[in-house]
Amino acid sequence: MAWLYVLLAAIVEIFWVIGLRYSDSALEWAGTVVAIIISFYAIIKACETLPSGTVYAVFTGSGAAAIVLIDFLFFHAEFSIAKVIFIAIIIIGVIGIKMTTVESETLEGGD
């Protein structure tokens, strides 16, 4: 379940980063703030079970890779083979971190 929170946080991160760049109205800014809150809530929930360093690395790496790809595909950002190679390295790193992380047992009774 913790990995689903990380995935949710990374997906929502895409929306709030785009919102930070393109929001013009109060409603769009409100949506961006709500997306930030949801994203960080999901990170906090994931950190209850997974190491925070792992959560942060996977969250930022996967979110950054997705945002760069969306910039290429939808916002016509400058495309280069070097950027694609570095995105692939990020994705490989995120997969490696996930494969080598062991989920811990959550403590019962508030200990």
Rank of each mutant, 00 (worst) to 15 (best):
L73T: 06
A10I: 06
I87D: 07
Y5Q: 04
S25R: 02
I37S: 13
L107R: 08
F72N: 05
K45P: 09
G63H: 06
I38V: 15
I14H: 04
G53S: 12
I70H: 03
A77L: 06
Y22W: 09
A82S: 13
G109M: 05
I70Y: 12
L69D: 12
A66K: 01
Y5F: 14
I92N: 15
V84Q: 15
I70L: 12
I81M: 12
A88D: 09
I18Q: 07
V12M: 06
T49M: 11
R21C: 07
I67H: 04
S62I: 04
T32W: 03
E48C: 12
I87A: 05
A66N: 07
I37F: 15
F74I: 07
I70T: 07
I89A: 05
I92H: 06
T106L: 12
E105K: 10
F15M: 08
I81P: 13
F59K: 00
S104W: 08
V33L: 14
T54W: 00
T32P: 14
V34L: 05
A10K: 04
V55G: 04
E108Y: 10
G96E: 01
V33D: 04
L20D: 11
V6L: 07
G53W: 12
Y56F: 09
I97Y: 00
Y22C: 13
I95W: 10
Y22M: 09
A9L: 05
L7H: 10
G63F: 07
E13T: 09
F59V: 01
E13W: 03
Y41T: 15
M1D: 12
F72T: 05
R21P: 09
W29F: 11
E48N: 14
A30W: 07
I89S: 10
I11G: 08
I36Q: 08
V55I: 01
E28S: 09
A2K: 03
V58E: 00
E28D: 13
T32L: 08
T60C: 12
H76F: 12
S23F: 03
T60D: 07
I14Y: 11
L7W: 12
T32D: 06
S52F: 15
T106D: 07
T54Q: 04
A65E: 05
I14A: 08
E48H: 10
G53H: 06
E108C: 13
S62G: 14
L27N: 08
I36Y: 10
A26H: 08
I11D: 01
F40V: 03
V6R: 00
I36T: 12
G96I: 00
T101K: 00
W16N: 03
S104T: 11
A88N: 11
S104N: 11
F72I: 02
I38Y: 02
K45L: 11
Y56C: 03
A2Y: 13
A82F: 14
I67D: 10
D71H: 01
